[in-house]
Design a binder for these strands. Sequence first.
RNA 1: GGCCGAUUAGCUCAGUUGGUCAGAGCGUCCGGUUUACAUCCGGAAGGCCGGGGGUUCGAGACCCUCAUCGGCCACCA
Length: 754
Amino acid sequence: MEPVYEPLKHEQKIYELWEKGGFFTGKIDKEKKPFSVILPLPNANDPMHMGHALFTIQDILCRYHRMLGDSVLWLPGSDHAGIETQFVFEKKLSKEGKSRFDFDRNTLFKMIWDFVEENREINIEQMKKLGFSLDWTRYHYSLEPEILKQIFDTFRKLHKEGLVYRGERLVNYCTFCGTAFSDLEVDHVERDDFLYYLDYGSLQIATTRPETIFADVAVAVNPEDKKYENLIGKKAIVPLINKEIPIIADSAVEKGFGTGALKITPAHDPVDFEIGKRHNLPVFSVIDLNGKMINVPNEIEGLYPKQARNKTTELLEKEGKLLKKEPLRHTVGICYRCKNLIEPLLMPQWFVKTKPLAAEAIEAVKKGKTKIFPPRFKKVYLDWMENIIDWNISRQIIWGPQIPAWYCLDCNQEIKINFLDKNGKLVSGIYKNLKENYPFEEIKNGLQSLTAPVEASYVTEENKSCPSCQGSRLLQETDTFDTWFLSGQWPLTTLGFNVKDPEKSAPDFKYFYPTSVMDTLWDILFFWVGRMMMFGLYLAEEVPFKLVHIHARVVDKFGQKMSKSKGNVVDPILMTEKYGADALRMSLVYGIAPASDIVVSEEKIKAMRNFANKVWNIGRFIKGSIDESGLSDKEKIPSFSKDMAGLSKEDREIVKDLEETIKKVTDLIEKYHFGLAAETIYEFIWHRFADQYIEYSKERVKNKDLAVFSVLRHVYLSSLKLLHPFMPFITESLWQIFSEDKESLTVSSWPKVQ
RNA sequence: GGCCGAUUAGCUCAGUUGGUCAGAGCGUCCGGUUUACAUCCGGAAGGCCGGGGGUUCGAGACCCUCAUCGGCCACCA
């Protein structure tokens, strides 16, 4: 044994040993208790970061349960990660001076596919480096045909049961990403803007968005507002275009704010949209999907809203309609991905009715069928579920499964189409205007995107001909599913659930579902955990997991979340190469309170590396002593038992302390206090066993005292077992040297108190 | 506006149900090396556990309140 433990010399070999032994392959064994965990699927194009390294917690649980004798399955996979991946890919394209609009959707899809394939393998290798005991034989990728088939069936089931519908709504649209988002994907930031007071004839209004006055359809005041009592039902005049609009009363208007009169612009503001609906007001848009002004005075037409604002206020000022302008700090929605302003725009989208799904997800948690740890997150979960709104599942991106809906062009001639013609030139227009000049095949082959009117008819199965007109010119919806629509069904699809006929689900599903633990970061509690709960209960009538374990978030030394854009990412793989995977893993759990932030510091990783070395050297001492004594023949060193002859007071004490440690660590793991569990083992091995007992034992080792060798070996092997879930590589390396049972520490039994 | 965290040694943080809980790592200081480990061993300095009030025989730990920092949710034009 070398005097200093060198992780790089051992880790790869050890992982190969595990893989060769098939120890991580989940087995359906009716005699055993299943313990299953689904890995939160990393993005296929994402290099590993500290968040992935935190899968250590799941590995601890899996290894612990494997040693308890449960039938463990930890199922890995990776996600195509729709918008994330397309965003990264588009950045790459733009570096090459290209954009997505240079390609038809099929070509673009293939390009991204290849791009992702290059990175997918890397991810897998990295997780092996961290020692994760994942069942690679059950690895899944989110775009596998079988996974897609199931989610399409889910869509059809939802559709058939009236839980999915198309609706024309004000949606969160990012004109830079070119897609709508669900409300969860909108970030809110505080910004300094101005509140403009404008003359609307009979009254004055205050607005932060003067460029949208052209889309005004009313002015609303609070019904209780004495100031405006007499004006309700009268008219106001939109300046610049001198449009007459009604003055209405709505309690959503706050009396004290601005002038107390609110211009109603249903097409570009969510509150206004709701008010408009209540009063049956028309909806009129002045910003298009490219984020440019339309249906406005010539000077403003074609400008971006920001430019349009300046121009509009300039014109207003000239006409004396801009009364004053005061600074205002307010919150605005920005795209979580590109950080540009979100435009609420009116457009048809696909929605899932979430209320009925959420009702079951609420009840399941309330009844404790799924528990949430730490418990305080239960309230967060319930608050969200109880206030859930319909879920926009359509995205105007191409990287993802297309929604299985087909429109007949002959029945829906108003469909808007963007495509590349046979010369590669981008053509946009309404089908009825295009059909004279372009054959259907040309449109279909060069198709980039289509937008069907909200009332357009469609079918959800791919037919050769239209069921109503028998025509054969059908185009599939170009919107793709929100990534979470797919990953929300991950525990079902990866285990082989059959949506159409649950009875025909795979044996894996029947044995391993519901899974035992879902360990994840709180920031995807709604995105993912919530959706998995809804889908699991809706499709399989059973919760997807019995426990949601919310783990900590890794932050830098300033307490900031690590992200590529901030440039503060600490590379776990680099740390692994420098100090070993065990050291990194231990540093991520040691002394960490449940769900509190983890500050990663190289110092701490180094300290854990030192601990690994201590564990190694204890082994080196014991092995050296045994070899030197000439007792290496195991016949001569009796295996330990409490009533063996020659035990000293110190022997009995260390064994008693070992047993207390076993009890305590087991208890702490059961309660998910991994931080304390790690500390307890560390403390025992280093400061109790090494510093005290081993120092004491040296005298007796010299005298070749058989009992002391038994105790040393017994305490050491038990310690390796306790430490194994946390530091699997080094403990396995040592186990291979010391244990008579050479199979693997991975499948040895968790120590028990006699 | 609603909700949730955090505030403990110079730094970063533990302290699970109230009673050797005033701790760890790093840093600092003193001492130690003829072979398990200097990625080590022994020892030391350093905190009235954010302020105030309360419950209790007893409180970092429970309750109230205030302050500061951070986060989440929410339609303030």
